[in-house]
Simulated scan of single mutants.
Amino acid sequence: MAKRNHLLIFILTVGVFGIINTEMGVIGILPSLADHYNISVSQAGLLVSLFALAVAISGPTMPLLFSGINRKKVMLLVLGVFLLSNIVSIFTTNFTVVLIARVIPAFFHPIYCSLAFTVAAASVSKEEAPKAVSKVFIGVSSGMVVGVPIVSFIANAVSIEMAMAFFAFVNAIVFIATIIFVPSMPVKERLSYGSQVRVLKKSMTWLSVAAVILLNSAVFGVYSYLAEYLKTVTNMSANSISLMLILFGGSNIIGNIVAGRLLTKNANKSVIAFPFVLGTVYIILFLVGQFSIPTAIVTLIWGILAGIGGNINQYWIISAAPEAPDFANGLFLTSANLGTTVCAAAGGLFISGMGTQYVILVGILSLIFSLITILLRIYRSAHAKQFSR
Rank of each mutant, 00 (worst) to 15 (best):
A238R: 11
A306Y: 03
L7R: 10
N313D: 11
S125L: 08
H383Y: 11
A382E: 14
D35K: 14
S40M: 10
S141W: 03
F169R: 09
V48P: 06
L245G: 00
G348I: 01
I9V: 12
I20C: 04
R261S: 15
N239K: 15
V209Q: 03
V48I: 12
T341A: 13
E161D: 13
R261C: 03
A218T: 02
A121W: 01
M185F: 10
G80C: 07
I179H: 15
V133A: 07
I241L: 11
Q43K: 12
A129Y: 06
G18N: 10
M144L: 15
A344W: 00
L278C: 02
A129L: 09
I29Y: 06
N252G: 11
D35W: 06
G309F: 02
V288L: 12
V26L: 12
N235C: 10
P183A: 09
I364T: 00
L99I: 15
M354A: 12
L99K: 14
E128H: 15
R261M: 07
I317A: 05
T205L: 10
P60M: 10
L338N: 04
G310I: 09
P110Y: 08
F107W: 08
S240H: 08
F220C: 03
V14Y: 05
L305K: 02
G250P: 03
K201I: 10
L376F: 15
F248I: 08
M236E: 06
F17K: 03
V170F: 08
L285E: 02
L215I: 09
A106E: 01
L8N: 02
L287Q: 11
F107Q: 07
A122F: 09
A346T: 11
S251M: 13
S142Y: 04
A121M: 08
M144D: 04
V41F: 09
F327A: 05
L8A: 06
A132R: 04
M354G: 03
K202P: 03
A121V: 05
Q357M: 13
V288F: 14
S208V: 03
A177F: 07
R377K: 15
I257P: 01
A129T: 07
T118D: 15
A44S: 11
N86G: 11
N21T: 13
S184P: 11
A346R: 00
T264V: 14
L287K: 06
S123L: 11
K385N: 09
F10T: 10
K72I: 09
I253C: 07
Y282N: 00
I29K: 06
S114I: 05
I138V: 15
E23S: 08
N86H: 08
I284E: 00
M236R: 03
M75K: 06
